[in-house]
C-alpha cells in the first residue's frame, strides 16, 4: 500500500470500488458542496471534485475537496493541466495533502474554448501523463519535478481518465499503457454507453496484462432524458452514444425517461461486472447526484465495505 487512500484500500481488498462526483458551485457557497456530498456519503468510496469542469469557473477543486474532507468523507481532487503550471500544481498538491486529501485525478482539461472564458490562455505547461509522473515522483522519490527534495512528501493515490471511445481506437490501449508507465494507480473511464466497444477495449487491456497494473473503474452516467442523450451524442467531444440508447429512451414516455435511464445504468453495471479487469465503477450523475444511492443499491454495490 502506497497511501492512506480509502479508494486504494478498497481496491487492494479486491472489492469493486464505487466513486462518484461533485461539481463545485459557481460561487462561494460551501453549503452546496456539503449538500451534494451528503447525498453520496454512504454509497461511495470516493467523491471526485471536478476542476473548472468544461472550462467554466467554479470553486477550486482544492477548496471543495477540503470541505468534503472536513465532513469526514473522501474527496478525489481533480486537477487539469489547462489552468496551472507545474509550480502551481505542486503547491496545490502539497497543500491538499496537508489537509488530508490523499487521492487525486490528473487530467488535460477541456479546451477553454468551451467554457465561459474562451479568451483565456491555456497553460498546458505539462500534460496529464507528465502530471501523473510528477505526482508519482513526489510520492515515491520525494522530489519535486524540478529535482529538489520535498520535506514532507505528499503521498497521493494517483488516478487518471481514459476514453476508450475517442479515436484512433487502436491508440486507446497504448495510451493507457503510457499512463501506467508514468505511474498511474487507477483509471476512471469516460461514460460508457457503447458496451461492445468497451468490451473490445478491455480485451485489449487484459491481453496486454494491463489490468494487473492499474485499477479500472468503469464510467457510468444515467440519462435523464432523451434530450440529454441527443445532446451528449452531438455536442460533447469524445462521446460514443449508440442509437439503441436513444431509441430505448424514445420508446418510453417523457415522465418515464428518468426511471428508464437509471434502469439502463444499472443494467450496464451488471453487464460490466462480468468483464475481466474492471475493478469498480465511477458513477457520474450530472446534476442528478440524488440518484446515485439508488443506482448503487440496485446494482448490488451496497453496502460499501468498511476499510
Amino acid at each position: 500500500m502506497n497511501t492512506q487512500s480509502r479508494l486504494e484500500k478498497i481496491l487492494a481488498s479486491g472489492e469493486l470500488a464505487v466513486t462518484s462526483e461533485c461539481g463545485p458551485p459557481r460561487g462561494a457557497r460551501p453549503e452546496k458542496v456539503k449538500e451534494k456530498s451528503a447525498l453520496l456519503k454512504d454509497h461511495v468510496d470516493g467523491i471526485n471534485v471536478t476542476d473548472n469542469q468544461t472550462a467554466m469557473v467554479r470553486m477550486s477543486s482544492f477548496a471543495a475537496a477540503v470541505i468534503i474532507k472536513q465532513m469526514g468523507l473522501d474527496p478525489i481532487m481533480q486537477m487539469v493541466a489547462r489552468d496551472r503550471n507545474r509550480l502551481a500544481m505542486q503547491s496545490d498538491i502539497i497543500g491538499a495533502y496537508a489537509f488530508g486529501i490523499n487521492t487525486m485525478l490528473c487530467l488535460s482539461g477541456d479546451h477553454a474554448k468551451f467554457g465561459d472564458h474562451p479568451m483565456a490562455k491555456g497553460v498546458f505547461d505539462i500534460d496529464s501523463v507528465q502530471m501523473i509522473n510528477m505526482v508519482r515522483r513526489m510520492r515515491d522519490d520525494e522530489t519535486f519535478q524540478g529535482g529538489a527534495k520535498i520535506d514532507g512528501a505528499p503521498k497521493m493515490f494517483i488516478g487518471a481518465a481514459a476514453n476508450p471511445f475517442a479515436d484512433p481506437f487502436e491508440l486507446r490501449v497504448m495510451r493507457l499503457a503510457k499512463k501506467i508507465k508514468a505511474g498511474v494507480d487507477f483509471i476512471q473511464t469516460q461514460c460508457i454507453f457503447n458496451l461492445d466497444k468497451f468490451e473490445e477495449w478491455m480485451k485489449g487491456v487484459t491481453d496486454r496484462g494491463l489490468d494487473k497494473k492499474v485499477h479500472i473503474l468503469a464510467g457510468i452516467t444515467p440519462m435523464k432524458s432523451v434530450g440529454m442523450a441527443r445532446y451528449m451524442k452531438n455536442k460533447v467531444p469524445g462521446m460514443d452514444i449508440p442509437d439503441t440508447v436513444i431509441k430505448r429512451l424514445e420508446g418510453v414516455s417523457k415522465q418515464q425517461q428518468p426511471e428508464e435511464g437509471i434502469k439502463m445504468a444499472v443494467e450496464s453495471i451488471e453487464r460490466i461486472k462480468q468483464i475481466k479487469g474492471v475493478h469498480g465503477f465511477h458513477i457520474m450523475a450530472i446534476e442528478w447526484e440524488e440518484k446515485v444511492p439508488q443506482i448503487v443499491e440496485q446494482a448490488g454495490l451496497y453496502p460499501r465495505p468498511k476499510v
Partner: peptide
C-alpha cells in the same frame, strides 16, 4: 495540438478532428 500535449491524443478527439472543432 490545441493543448500542446506531448503525450496525446486527449480524450476529446473525434473523427480525427481536434475537440476545438
Amino acid at each position: 495540438c490545441s493543448k500542446h500535449l506531448f503525450n496525446g491524443p486527449c480524450g476529446g478527439t473525434s473523427n480525427g478532428q481536434c475537440e476545438i472543432g
